[in-house]
Design a binder for these strands. Structure first.
Length: 660
DNA sequence: ATTAGGG
DNA sequence: CCCTAAT
């Protein structure tokens, strides 16, 4: 079955490295404007455009305190609006340790593709806060950018533009164009200012789209943190061929616009987002369903071990996502498109800075400004520069994912499959949750069938959540529910040592399918909030995905524990009786060929534990009790094959001896 | 890719 | 289950 679901992602704390200074932003801005106008740009690209384009100059990263989460007053043009609640997360730009920042920016100028507009002005940009992304199943990227701040540098004059964009087109009920409209206005206004010179270094504007009421998550300022989104390039073809097919999704109803809490010295210009943003969606259907992913060129960045880790568990899941298949470890410039542009030496992949961004509180504003100003003028290597941009992504949608999973697979394997697919895109650090009909499915051991995920009707209500890996899921632990699918048993030659009757009786239930559990969905769902993309405990969450250590552990999290069911044990025993203890691959093929989550290593390990279990007293055994009869067979088979092995060795020795 | 073992 | 050395 093929699941095509949208991923509603809920975590925060991603860091996005900043982009090196680039000279070509005017073009980007125009493009941005145009794209927005055309509504052909999905939020994600919008983000890419805004962020990538605007982030270019770290040096002049000026940062504003915007309170994306709170509904704020409308900021009139040329008026300064001071937002009292600065608790929101302003960004802090800090020098980056070059050594620790080996990641490149994920934001690129993809949106600028093909645009050869004149680049007349230089612009520095800085994304201060990204609220989130939403990527819909049908193909698009959309993003909610909570607060994007950019600084435009015009000669010695700098204009800071602060943009708050939230997700999709945020329009009033009827006008789809308001979004673009507003942006347009803003742009026009900014440009006007630029022209008039009215914009001083503290002029900022804000584009506000639908806002999130939740406070932004702060990102840890650990410079060594990992940057999930960062990376080199990802194949250009990763992106939809035609952006005409992108849709803007407006998913929030939070109509409130945010305010800019900027320093009073700044002139602010705010575009007030239209109040009610309905749940409407403005969309253009994506024509091409499949994105192409070009094979990844060897960038030699992945060590063997890394690769291995990435692929380690793939066998168990069938993930049909090209990006994953072809470029397993995509944690590189996600937004990089085939833009060969870079007309004036703008952001090229090489330009991407490796520094990371650090998130900070509002009070960091001053420091940020300082930092940025201090760097201003250092045209040189972005490498040396240490500005950081922090982005917090609350939610986003992932482009179409095609995941093929057997109905007999467990929820856990489904999660892993999704996780792998998502990880390929995001770079890991997240945990995938499954939501069905509004309820979180917690039992990873249940099969999809048992959970009801196989029905189309229910499929509609199937959703996934991405959560930070860190807060170890307060798993109720219990729910042993060993309902694994009985493996196919080998129906073949009679085992040598097992009494016939035992064999028959034990294999009587072979092939039986566990009755679908009625309450497949765990009703003990903690709270509906789980579905809410925004984590409450921002602080806690924010730090998690950023741990550098996580690089490996995050990407390849430990496989879900899946205790062997009795029927599986039975199948294993039977197979080993027949094949012996040294042919795990054959055992796998024979008895667990359709159990994707059981590798031959697993089987070997299980046999090892079975032998151990059989040797200890029943009181010492844990977990689901294994029938003594099976354990007896385990010991018998173990002894038998051990003996066989000795015999073979003796024989070989004799042959050798004779030869000599 | 498998096997064998230690952790 | 994970990790690895050795095949």
């Amino acid at each position: 079955m093929v699941l095509q679901k949208r991923l509603d992602y809920g975590f925060s704390g991603f860091q996005v490295p900043d982009v090196p200074r680039s000279t070509r932003s005017a073009r980007g801005r125009r493009l941005f404007k145009r794209k927005v106008e055309d509504r052909q740009m999905c939020a994600f690209e919008l983000l890419a455009t805004v962020a990538g384009d605007l982030l270019q100059e770290r040096d002049s990263c000026v940062h504003s305190n915007a309170s994306p989460g709170t509904a704020g007053p409308v900021i009139e043009q040329d008026t300064v609006k001071q937002e009292p609640q600065d608790k929101e997360a302003p960004l802090k730009v800090e020098p980056c340790d070059p050594g620790s920042c080996d990641e490149s920016v994920f934001v690129s100028d993809g949106a600028l593709q093909g645009d050869n507009g004149n680049c007349t002005s230089k612009e520095s940009t800085h994304v201060s806060y990204v609220e989130g992304f939403e990527i819909a199943s049908n193909s698009d990227f959309s993003a909610k950018v909570s607060c994007v701040e950019r600084t435009k540098e015009d000669g010695n004059q700098k204009v800071n533009l602060s943009c708050k964009v939230n997700g999709s087109a945020c329009n009033e009920s009827s006008s789809k164009d308001k979004f673009s409209h507003g942006i347009e206005q803003r742009l026009a206004s900014d440009e006007q200012k630029m022209v008039n010179g009215t914009a001083q270094d503290t002029c900022s504007s804000e584009y506000v789209m639908d806002l999130d009421n939740k406070p932004p998550a702060l990102v840890s300022s650990d410079s060594s943190a990992e940057v999930p989104f960062s990376g080199d390039h990802i194949p250009c073809s990763y992106f939809p061929k035609s952006w005409d097919n992108v849709q803007l999704v407006n998913k929030d109803d939070d109509e409130n616009s945010s305010e800019c809490t900027q320093p009073s010295t700044r002139t602010m210009n705010a575009f007030r987002s239209l109040s009610r943003i309905g749940d409407r969606r403005i969309r253009k259907i994506l024509a091409s369903k499949y994105w192409k992913v070009a094979p990844r060129s060897n960038d030699g960045e992945l060590s063997n071990s890394e690769m291995r880790r990435v692929f380690h568990n793939r066998k168990g899941c069938y993930t049909r996502q090209r990006s994953q298949r072809n470029s397993p470890y995509i944690r590189r410039k996600l937004f990089k498109r085939c833009s060969k542009s870079t007309c004036d030496g703008g952001l090229s992949s090489e330009d991407i800075s490796k520094s990371l961004v650090k998130g900070v509180n509002g009070d960091g504003t001053a420091s940020v400004s300082q930092a940025s100003s201090s760097v201003v003028g250092q045209e040189a290597s972005f490498h040396s520069r240490g500005s950081h941009v922090k982005l917090s992504i609350k939610s986003f949608r992932v482009p179409e994912l095609f995941i093929e999973v057997s109905e007999m697979e467990t929820v856990g394997s489904l999660k892993r499959a999704v996780l792998e697919a998502v990880t390929a895109i995001l770079g890991g650090g997240v945990h995938v949750g499954v939501v069905l009909q509004g309820k979180k499915v917690r039992d990873d051991n249940k099969t999809l069938l048992q959970t009801g995920i196989s029905h189309h009707d229910k499929l509609e209500t199937l959703g996934f959540m991405l959560e930070p890996t860190l807060p170890p899921p307060p798993t109720p632990t219990s729910t042993p529910t060993p309902t694994s699918t009985p493996p196919a048993l080998c129906h073949e030659d009679p085992p040598h040592l097992v009494p016939r009757e035992i064999q028959n009786s034990s294999s009587s239930d072979r092939g039986s399918v566990p009755p679908p559990a009625d309450g497949s969905v765990d009703k003990t769902l903690t709270d509906s909030r789980a579905l809410v993309p925004i984590p409450t405990r921002v602080e806690a969450l924010s730090v998690v995905p950023l741990q550098r250590k996580s690089r490996q552990s995050e990407l390849v999290q430990r496989r879900m524990r899946r205790p062997f069911s009795v029927s599986e044990v039975e199948a294993l025993v039977q197979a080993v009786e027949k094949l012996g203890t040294g042919r795990w691959r054959d055992v796998k093929l024979c008895a667990f060929d359709n159990a994707k989550h059981r590798t031959y290593v697993d089987l070997k390990d299980k046999w090892k534990t079975l032998v151990h279990t059989a040797r200890i007293s029943p009181q010492q055994r844990r977990g689901e009790p294994v029938p003594q009869e099976l354990l007896d067979r385990v010991l018998a088979a173990h002894a038998y094959w051990a003996h066989q092995q000795v015999k073979v060795q003796m024989k070989q020795q004799n042959e050798q001896y004779l030869l000599i």
